[in-house]
Simulated assay, not measured.
Amino acid sequence: MNIIETFYSAFGRGDAQTMEACYHPEAEFTDEVFVGLKGKEVPAMWKMLIERSKGELEITYSHVQANEQGGSADWVAVYIFSATGRRVINRIHAEFEFKDGKIYRHTDSFDLHKWAAQAIGFKGKLLGGTAFFRKKVQKTAREGLNRYISRNFSA
């Protein structure tokens, strides 16, 4: 099993510890919501998302390609969005760069407008494609992650 399959298999089991072990200590992550995460922020984000899902998270992955330098995969997350209680089916494409046999750069791409329509409903459908909405979601996500990290990983 390659590092990408190990990562998504662990994600599907809610195993944040194994997911963290897949990342290089200097890893970077970006997607439509979480932008420019570095180092310990990356596994903390996954741990937070797993905890928020309260066991209602279904992960499937396909089209995994990998070599020593990097790889890609398509994956689907089905979950209940905690802020609204709405069911989301998010289809994501992931690109990876490896360093020292671990995930060094991880970029996920998905349709934020489609996500917003599912997660938020009418307002998300109406505003989900705007730059204003994207910035607001990114700011809210970053603040939530910062609070999570300060509560769970501070000395």
Score class of each variant (00 low, 15 high):
A16D: 14
A16V: 06
A16E: 15
Q17S: 10
T18K: 13
T18S: 13
Y23T: 07
H24K: 06
H24Y: 08
P25Q: 04
E26A: 11
A27D: 01
A27Y: 02
E28G: 15
T30G: 12
D31P: 07
V35H: 12
V35D: 08
G36W: 07
K38W: 02
K38Q: 14
K38H: 13
G39H: 07
E41N: 14
E41Y: 09
V42E: 07
V42G: 14
P43V: 02
A44C: 03
A44N: 04
M45P: 09
W46K: 01
W46S: 02
K47H: 15
K47E: 15
K47T: 12
M48G: 10
L49F: 14
L49V: 04
I50F: 12
I50D: 12
I50G: 13
E51I: 04
R52C: 01
G55S: 09
E56C: 07
L57M: 15
L57A: 15
L57K: 13
E58C: 14
E58Y: 12
I59E: 14
T60S: 15
T60I: 01
Y61Q: 06
Y61G: 06
S62T: 09
V64K: 11
E68A: 15
G70P: 13
S72Y: 02
S72A: 12
D74G: 11
W75E: 00
W75I: 00
V76Y: 03
V76D: 08
V76M: 10
A77C: 08
V78M: 09
V78T: 11
V78K: 15
I80H: 10
F81N: 01
S82L: 01
A83K: 12
A83C: 06
R86K: 15
R87T: 05
I89F: 10
N90L: 09
I92P: 04
I92Q: 09
I92H: 09
H93F: 00
H93M: 02
A94V: 01
E95R: 00
E95T: 00
F96K: 02
F96N: 01
E97F: 02
F98K: 09
F98C: 03
F98R: 06
D100Y: 12
G101T: 01
I103E: 05
I103F: 05
Y104G: 01
R105Y: 05
R105W: 06
T107R: 15
